[in-house]
Design a protein around this nucleic acid. Structure first.
Length: 443
DNA sequence: TCTGGGGTCCTAGGACCC
DNA sequence: TCTGGGGTCCTAGGACCC
């Protein structure tokens, strides 16, 4: 049963997130973007991954390739390439502000943080104070949701956003305490845990709002939609199914993949670059990979849609880039032979490298026949140090017959300038001073 | 016409998240 | 011309075992 208002519990969780976060980050450093329709593009200047409200008002949608946007609209829009290093930095500052105000903080994503408000006298006041500080000290506008569960806090956050969009004084209405009986205004597809598929099925049985979802019988939800949605359903009713997750759980896999700037006949250098980056991330986290998988995709936009992958275990989990590169080459050759033979495929549009079965590097057990290659791994540690000191990409691993240049993790663009596979940024200069007007001239 | 049953491990696919 | 990237969890089904 949905609880009555008199039984409503005080909020236990808050969710604080930055409004159109990537756009807001860009605006911190470039005041000219403020108030103007602004778009942040993903890899290769492909799709819109963040839109300011003004850009949304022009009809732009998340995920739409920018080249598909009509020219007369495009010329009205300020465009930036994603700069994740910058966003990550601002995100960390937000987290430190939250730590000053709340006893526990869960970093949920680059722009969202759950906080513990259980037992607080004035949780709304605390959320408003957080919003104020983040806006003043960092320059990012935020909204906050409060609720007895994390799902309700998420719901409150969304409702706060809707509310502050309509308000003249956005700040005053930027916090919303969501309770099980205050969910009528929330569309069911905006519930955390309800994606497109579930939303379509729920709509088909007449459920269009979060309130209607909460009102469904629990056993019906469990039987028809499974345990995942059943938990969401309980949380909407105010029954917590999870607490804050303060420790970052150990990674199970680590993936580096890209859409290539154009179709590529020989993807080996690209895959080697991805593997090099993946191994750096691996060592940074103190992990070792028990297995590897490699995949290559055709170009679905040219009617050549295929996906081919190969996987292989390592005898002992490894951190050694050279060992991973050897395996990558072996697997990639195998894929290319197969696709070449069975389909006559000559070109690939996308590829990736995944390291899986990750374990702590210190937890590996050597046996009689196999042990980690300590010499090679010490070499890797030296390489990482040099790259950290003298700039990423200073040193690479050349032992497998190709050279990987400018590939290091965290770099905004992977690959050497003349690499065929390198995601194109021809439409944009990476500088803050870039304007869409320049962009048309470059074309 | 006529089925063993139960446990475990692995994988592929589907669903979700930002 | 140009079409994002990186994760997790759950479930169903197959292989294998006793």
């Amino acid at each position: 049963m949905v609880r009555r208002p008199s039984e409503v519990e005080p909020p236990r969780f808050g969710l604080i997130d930055g409004n159109t976060f990537y756009v807001s980050c860009e605006r911190v450093f470039d005041a000219r973007l403020r108030g103007k329709p602004t778009v942040v593009l993903g890899n290769g200047d492909g799709c819109c991954i963040a839109l300011s409200p003004e850009a949304k008002a022009l009809g732009l949608k998340i995920g739409v390739p920018i080249f598909q946007v009509p020219k007369d609209i495009r010329t009205q829009v300020q465009v930036r390439s994603a700069n994740f290093a910058l966003y990550g930095d601002l995100s960390a500052r937000i987290v430190s502000i939250l730590h000053d105000l709340f006893p526990r903080v869960e970093v949920y994503s680059i722009d969202e943080n759950f906080v513990d408000v259980a037992g607080m006298k004035d949780p709304v006041g605390a959320a408003l104070e957080a919003r104020e500080r983040i806006l003043k000290w960092i320059g990012i506008p935020c909204c906050a949701g409060l609720g007895a569960t994390r799902t309700l806090a998420k719901a409150g956050n969304k409702l706060a956003k809707d509310q502050s969009k309509r308000a003249v004084n956005a700040g005053a209405l930027s916090v919303f305490h969501a309770t099980p009986h205050k969910l009528d205004a929330l569309a069911v597809e905006d519930v955390w845990g309800v994606g497109r598929r579930y939303a379509a099925r729920l709509n088909a049985e007449g459920v269009t709002t979060a309130a209607e979802l909460a009102a469904l019988p629990a056993d019906h939800v469990r039987a028809r939609y499974g345990v995942v949605l059943a938990r969401t359903h309980m949380e909407l009713r105010g029954v917590p199914c999870g607490d804050l997750e303060l420790e970052e759980p150990d990674r199970k896999q680590l993936v580096v993949s890209r859409t290539f700037g154009r179709d590529v006949v020989d993807p080996m250098e690209a895959l080697a670059t991805f593997a090099t980056v993946a191994c750096e991330k691996l060592r940074k986290r103190g992990l070792a990979a028990g297995a590897l998988w490699v995949w290559l995709d055709g170009n679905p936009f040219k009617g050549d849609s295929f996906h081919a992958s190969r996987a292989a275990p390592f005898p002992i989990p490894t951190q050694d880039t050279a060992e991973v590169l050897r395996a990558v080459r072996f697997l990639a050759m195998s894929i290319m032979r197969q696709t070449g033979k069975s389909r006559g495929v000559q070109a690939y549009k996308r590829g990736g490298v995944g390291l899986t079965d990750l374990v702590g590097a210190e937890d590996r057990q050597a046996d009689l026949f196999f042990r980690p290659n300590e010499k090679a791994e010490r070499g890797m540690a030296v390489l990482d140090k040099i790259n950290a000191k003298f700039g990423r990409g200073t040193l690479g691993v050349g032992t497998v017959g190709w050279r990987v240049g400018g590939a290091m993790a965290g770099e905004r663009r992977m690959g050497s300038k003349d690499a065929q596979w390198r995601p194109t940024l021809q439409a944009l200069s990476p500088s803050y001073t870039t304007k869409w007007g320049d962009l048309l001239a470059v074309r």
